[in-house]
Design a protein around this nucleic acid. Structure first.
Length: 108
DNA sequence: CTAATGACGTAGA
DNA sequence: ATCTACGCCATTA
């Protein structure tokens, strides 16, 4: 039976400067279609966790909006930009090159 | 026990 | 490309 730890371990394997999506994490954890649980799991992370939760965005390549407009959204974007990622004018990332695992090589 | 909710995704219009 | 509707299911009310 899968647990939050499974999600956390996968997220921990995302390289710096790369991102993945909730749906992908769920699939890698063997629970396709349960993307919401991934977000739920990340939201339950303690503040001092070693899990790079900020490297998980939605399938559109944007930082998902929290319910109460939490400050973690801004934090997430700042952390990602700090890792070299660039958001376009729509607040989205280039998922073809930034997504992990690699979908397509040739982003150079 | 049932109903609503949500860091999501996909299909169809 | 954007928008809506629906499926998903653990957690909460």
């Amino acid at each position: 039976m899968a647990s939050y730890e499974d999600f956390y371990n996968i997220v921990r394997s995302i390289p710096e400067g790369r991102v993945s999506s909730y749906g992908v994490i769920a699939r890698l954890a063997g629970l396709p279609g349960q993307a919401r649980q991934v977000g739920y799991a990340l939201g339950a992370l303690p503040h001092a966790s070693d899990v790079p939760w900020h490297r998980v965005v939605n399938a559109r390549g944007e930082v998902s909006a929290r319910k109460g407009g939490s400050a973690s959204e801004k934090i997430q974007r700042l952390l990602l930009e700090h890792e070299g990622l660039v958001f376009d004018e729509h607040g989205r990332l280039d998922m073809v090159c930034a997504a992990w695992p690699d979908i397509q090589t040739r982003c150079d």
